[in-house]
Structure formats: structure tokens, C-alpha cells
Computed example of a mutant assay.
Amino acid sequence: MALLLALAGCGESSPKPPEPSTKPSGETSAEPSDKKGFGTVFDTERKIRATLPQPESMAGWTPKNGRAHVEEQPDSPSECGADTHWDCTAVGNGSANYEAAGETVIFSVDAFPDTKAAQAACRKEESWSAKYTKKKVPPLSGVTSHAYYRNAGGLDGLDLTMCTGTVIAQVRLEGEGSDLDPATSHTLAKTFLARIQKAAAAS
């Protein structure tokens, strides 16, 4: 099912600012707090949509598309095994894309059945992503995370991954007009983390 991102209120005609790395996107102005202990399971499309940044918190960015998906029959750890992709045990996932001045940000979230499964997937993801790392960049402070530059299919990007509670959340910056500034990635990641924590508390 397509994720509705309130596009009616943020049309394609919105002007794009020249420097997306300086734009506010603050659902919070404080440093993020890694609430590893939240046990909320995001196992419905409504709950997954609630974790994704909305246009009102993305001033200067134009919403492009989004989605939410729930696995009807999630795989168990025993079914997945050691050699499967890190998100094998996920119970659902979602994403939201925004654009500004030639830069694209992609927010994605993978939800797991409990914190143990999420932590296992987090370790696996970090090992998996190390194979594609072009250059590591500073992680987001205050939360279990790692970030790196990478090149895939001839396209440079900056990926930041956060592990918190029962989810793995990722922020990807890319685009021909992007300067791939870690500060931009961190600002957007704080917005994402605040949204996830708010959704967890509300569920």
C-alpha cells in the first residue's frame, strides 16, 4: 500500500533552497537519546508510517514518494540462518523520499519482532555494509549508529544507519547536486530518530 505523505500540502511547485545542508528539519532540537529499551513492535502499516518523517518536519524539502509494507508471514531466525541478508527476520519496512536542490534523502526503516532480533540484525548489517564502505564518516552521537560514504552503480552516496529499540533506521543522501555533507545527514537522522521515538511512545 502506498504511504500517503500529505502531498496535497507540499506540492511539486515548492521552491528548492540552494543549500539543503543548512535547512531545519527539527522534530527536536536536542541531542537524540538512544531508547534501546523500547519494545514497541511496528507490525502494521499504520505503525510503520508513523515512524517516517512527515512534510511538516522537512521544511525546504519536497516529498516525492513513500510506502509501508508488512510481511504476512515473517521468517524466523531459524528459517533465515547465518547466510541470509540482514533484514531477513524483519516483520515490516517502510520508506519516504524527499528532494531539494538536486539532493535526495531516503528514509527507510526495518521493523523486527523484538529488540533481540533487531540487535542481531544490526550487527549483521554493520558487517554487511562494511563490504561496500568507501570511507567511514562520524556516526550520530547518542545512538548506536555508523555512517559511511559509498559508491554503488556509479552513484556516490552517504549512508547513516541507526539501531534503536526494535528497528533499524537508515538515512541515505545522494544525487548529482549533493555535497554529501555529514552535518546534513546528522540533522536529518535526528528528525528521523525523534519521529521513531514518538511513534514508539504512542503505540
Rank of each mutant, 00 (worst) to 15 (best):
K47Q: 14
A50W: 03
A50S: 04
A50R: 03
T51I: 07
L52G: 01
L52I: 04
P53R: 01
P53I: 00
Q54G: 11
Q54Y: 00
P55Q: 11
E56N: 05
S57Q: 03
S57W: 03
S57L: 11
M58D: 00
M58V: 07
A59D: 10
A59G: 12
G60D: 09
W61E: 02
W61C: 00
W61N: 00
T62Q: 10
T62E: 13
K64D: 11
K64H: 00
K64T: 07
N65A: 13
G66D: 07
G66V: 00
R67Y: 15
R67S: 13
R67C: 10
R67E: 14
A68S: 11
H69C: 07
E71F: 07
E71M: 12
E72K: 11
E72T: 09
D75V: 03
S76T: 15
P77D: 10
S78Y: 10
S78V: 03
E79M: 09
C80G: 08
G81A: 07
G81Y: 07
G81I: 01
A82L: 08
D83A: 10
D83Y: 13
D83H: 14
H85G: 11
W86A: 06
W86P: 10
C88H: 04
C88F: 05
C88S: 08
T89I: 11
T89K: 08
V91T: 06
G92W: 10
N93Q: 14
G94M: 02
S95G: 07
A96H: 05
A96W: 02
N97P: 08
E99M: 04
A100E: 08
E103F: 07
I106R: 11
F107R: 12
F107K: 02
S108F: 07
V109T: 09
V109M: 15
F112R: 02
P113T: 06
P113Q: 11
D114A: 09
T115W: 09
A117H: 01
A117N: 00
A118T: 02
A118R: 01
Q119S: 09
Q119D: 06
A120D: 14
A121R: 05
A121M: 08
R123H: 12
R123M: 11
K124P: 03
K124R: 10
K124D: 09
E125S: 09
E126N: 09
S129D: 13
S129C: 07
A130Q: 14
A130K: 15
Y132I: 02
Y132S: 08
Y132P: 04
T133N: 14
T133K: 14
T133M: 13
K136R: 15
V137F: 12
V137H: 07
P139G: 05
P139F: 08
P139N: 08
L140D: 04
L140E: 06
T144I: 08
A147Y: 05
Y148K: 01
Y148N: 08
R150L: 15
N151P: 08
N151C: 12
A152L: 14
G153A: 04
G154S: 03
L155Y: 14
G157P: 07
L158K: 00
D159E: 15
D159N: 10
D159Y: 10
L160Y: 04
L160W: 06
M162I: 06
T164V: 15
T164F: 15
G165E: 01
G165I: 01
T166K: 00
T166F: 01
T166V: 04
V167S: 06
I168S: 00
I168N: 01
I168Q: 01
Q170S: 12
V171G: 06
R172T: 12
R172S: 14
R172F: 06
R172M: 13
E174N: 11
G175C: 08
G175A: 02
G175Q: 02
